[in-house]
Amino acid sequence: MSTTPTTPGSDPRKDSLIEYPSLFPIKVMGTKVDGLVHAITAIAEEYDPQFDASTIELRDSKAGNYLGITITVTATSREQLDNLYRALSSHPMVKVVL
Rank of each mutant, 00 (worst) to 15 (best):
L58R: 15
A87C: 08
G30H: 05
T4R: 14
A53F: 04
R78V: 05
K95I: 15
T74K: 14
K32M: 12
Y47R: 05
S89D: 07
N65C: 12
I43K: 00
L81D: 02
R59K: 14
I26F: 09
Y66F: 14
L67R: 09
D82V: 09
L58V: 08
L84I: 04
H38I: 14
E45D: 05
Y85W: 12
I18P: 01
P5A: 07
L23Y: 10
L84N: 01
L84R: 02
F51R: 02
D52T: 00
D48V: 00
K95N: 13
G35T: 01
L88A: 04
T74R: 12
D52P: 01
H91L: 09
P5D: 12
L36T: 05
Y20L: 04
S54T: 15
S2I: 04
S2K: 08
K27R: 14
T31H: 08
I69V: 15
E57F: 07
M29E: 11
F24R: 05
E46W: 09
A44P: 00
Y20R: 03
H91Y: 10
M29S: 11
L17H: 06
V73C: 03
I40G: 00
S2R: 07
P21H: 02
S16P: 00
T72V: 01
R13E: 05
L17G: 07
P12T: 14
V94D: 02
Y47C: 11
V37Y: 01
S54W: 00
I69H: 12
G35M: 09
K32W: 09
M93C: 08
V94E: 02
T76G: 09
G35D: 08
I43D: 00
L98S: 08
K27V: 08
V33L: 10
V28D: 10
K62S: 15
S54Y: 01
H91V: 02
M1E: 11
H38T: 15
L81P: 02
A39I: 02
G9V: 04
E79T: 14
A63M: 13
G35L: 08
I56H: 01
G30Q: 06
A44K: 02
T70N: 01
T41L: 03
I56N: 01
Q80S: 06
D82Q: 12
G68K: 11
G64I: 05
E46G: 13
Q80A: 04
M93F: 09
A39V: 04
K27T: 07
D15Q: 02
P92S: 06
Y47D: 10
M1Q: 10
P12E: 14
I71M: 05
N83A: 13
G68F: 10
G68V: 13
E79K: 14
S77H: 04
P8G: 04
E57K: 14
S22C: 15
S89T: 12
S89Q: 09
L98G: 07
E46C: 13
A39S: 13
P8D: 06
N83Q: 15
S61I: 11
I43P: 00
P5V: 07
T31M: 06
S22I: 11
P5L: 10
V97F: 06
D52L: 01
D52E: 09
N83L: 15
P92T: 04
I71C: 02
A75M: 07
A42N: 11
A39Q: 10
E57L: 13
S90G: 11
P92H: 08
I71D: 00
